[in-house]
């Protein structure tokens, strides 16, 4: 009884994972792909739990779902900012420019 229910659980989980992966690899928008990747990591943790590997699931929950998502979001922002022709605000060159501008104004 319980094994047939778990097999049904497997099938739904696998179909969702494959659909999620296909969408994340084929969307135009990179931000959408990053959000789909966060959700994909979450479903991967469920898959590890289902395969009786709770240690791997713990690592995946901490690293895959918790750490990789913010990393990708930060990198995405940094890339978008430089693509529009603006320098990074915290680079030394820019800080010196701002400092000089402030001195001239003041």
């Amino acid at each position: 009884m319980i094994y047939s229910i778990l097999t049904l659980f497997d099938i739904i989980l696998i179909l969702t994972m494959l659909w999620l992966a296909w969408c994340l690899l084929n969307t135009e928008d990179i931000f959408k792909a990053v959000v789909l990747f966060i959700s994909f990591g979450l479903l991967m943790a469920l898959a590890w739990v289902r395969m009786r590997a709770p240690d791997v699931a713990l690592a995946e929950a901490a690293l895959g779902a918790g750490l990789t998502g913010p990393l990708f979001l930060s990198a995405l922002r940094r890339m978008n900012r430089t693509r529009k022709g603006e320098r990074r605000l915290d680079s030394d060159e820019n800080r010196e420019k701002e400092h000089k501008a402030n001195q001239e104004q003041g």
């Binding site: 792909a33 990747f37 990708f72 995405l76």
Partner: peptide, 11 residues
């Protein structure tokens, strides 16, 4: 796009 390549390697 490089970010998409990194995502693909992760998958």
């Amino acid at each position: 796009h490089p970010l998409r390549k990194i995502l693909a390697v992760n998958v």
